[in-house]
Simulated assay, not measured.
Amino acid sequence: MDGYEGGTGDTLNLSRLNLESLDLDEMSQDRKRETQQLYLPYNRFTVLPASISLFSNLVFLDISHNGLAFICEDILRLSKLKTLIAKNNRLDEFSLPKDFGSMSLEVINFSGNRFEEVPSQFLKLQTLHYLSLGGNRLKTIPSEIENLTSLEMLYLGGNAISSIPPELANLRYLSYLVLCDNRIQSIPPQLTQLHSLRSLSLHNNLLTYLPREILSLIHLQELSLRGNPLVVRFVKDMTYDPPSLLELAGRTIKSRNLPYTPWDLPGNLVRYLDLASKCPNPKCGGVYFDSCVRHIKFVDFCGKYRLPLMHYLCSPECTSPCSSNPQSDADSEDESSVPAHRMQKVLLG
């Protein structure tokens, strides 16, 4: 029983003791009463012990990495419990007490379990700020998710979710939304109502476009898109056809401002020279006609996270708008020079 005295002050650490039950007869009442944080990971519990209710002042409970398949109703007696961590067990939507939704939990992490649905009890937790159900077997996000009005972070990565309900946009305090490694094919435009959103993780899904409305998420600092057809397709399209001799001659005339008149050149060449497009790179005085470089800066490769933007450049060497220097990239304002229709081409695919 001496092992049950691990930890100091208000923290009791009983992890990695191969416990199958929690016999607290030899533990003092004062010790039980003063414990506010209890760690029980890496034991052999299959059911949360009923004796857990003896820790009447418990605020934090970690029961991760056990064989838990059921959480007993005695947990409901922990009226002060705010954080419940139960990662990597065998829990599913039938493992929770019926009245679990009456608790005052603020943080729930049930990642790495066997949930095929978001438990209805979770959707009644009005005080919940953080919900993690990553690495489960979820196929859908219920529309009732909008009931979690205090939610600030939602982690649902690593499931089999195929769509996002518009009701998710009603979570006015949501700042971090993680939906990576799913099967999501589209983003509802309503998501742009998440005015508090700072981070949106959508990598490794099936997205082929983004709604243009996403530009209205003015507080968004991180947007992760790698591993989606949207990104893969545009990266593959970044090919460069070398300019023809005609274009090289035209570039020389235009970039060096060589004088000419309609009497000096055939009419078709004069018309061709009038089609020159100025390189949008403010540090470059070059032009292009038919051959240009489509240089796309995507959001999740390195440096500062940004929305995808396409730059039409005159040559592969003209790369200032998409500098590899992290500092200059972060400070660059070249995006403002990209016409809206080109940005739309990238965003809408």
Rank of each mutant, 00 (worst) to 15 (best):
G157T: 08
D99V: 01
L156P: 03
F115R: 06
L105H: 02
E144R: 03
K98P: 10
S162H: 14
P97V: 12
L148F: 06
F94Q: 12
V178S: 01
Y155T: 09
R137S: 09
T149D: 12
E146H: 11
V107N: 08
N147C: 06
R114I: 14
M103I: 06
E93W: 02
P166A: 00
D99L: 05
F100H: 10
R137A: 09
G101D: 05
L91I: 09
P142S: 15
L96C: 12
A160M: 10
G112L: 11
G134F: 03
L177S: 00
E146D: 13
A169W: 04
L138Y: 06
P119H: 05
I161T: 11
E144L: 13
R137D: 10
L123F: 07
V178R: 00
G134L: 02
F110I: 06
S163T: 15
L128H: 06
N159I: 04
G157S: 15
S162D: 14
G157V: 06
N170W: 02
Q126P: 00
L156D: 01
L171W: 11
L156V: 06
L179C: 01
S120I: 00
L91M: 07
A160P: 09
N109K: 13
E93F: 00
F110A: 14
I141P: 01
I145D: 08
P165I: 03
L156Y: 08
M103S: 09
D92Y: 03
S132W: 07
L131V: 11
Y130H: 13
S104G: 13
T127D: 11
Q121E: 15
V118Y: 05
L125R: 05
R172N: 07
E152T: 12
G157D: 13
Q126H: 12
L138Q: 04
S120H: 08
L156G: 00
N147I: 00
E152L: 09
L105G: 09
H129R: 15
L171S: 02
Y155V: 15
E146A: 14
P165N: 07
T140H: 12
E144G: 12
L131E: 07
N147E: 14
Q121Y: 04
F115L: 03
F110P: 03
K98G: 03
S95Q: 05
L151S: 04
V107A: 04
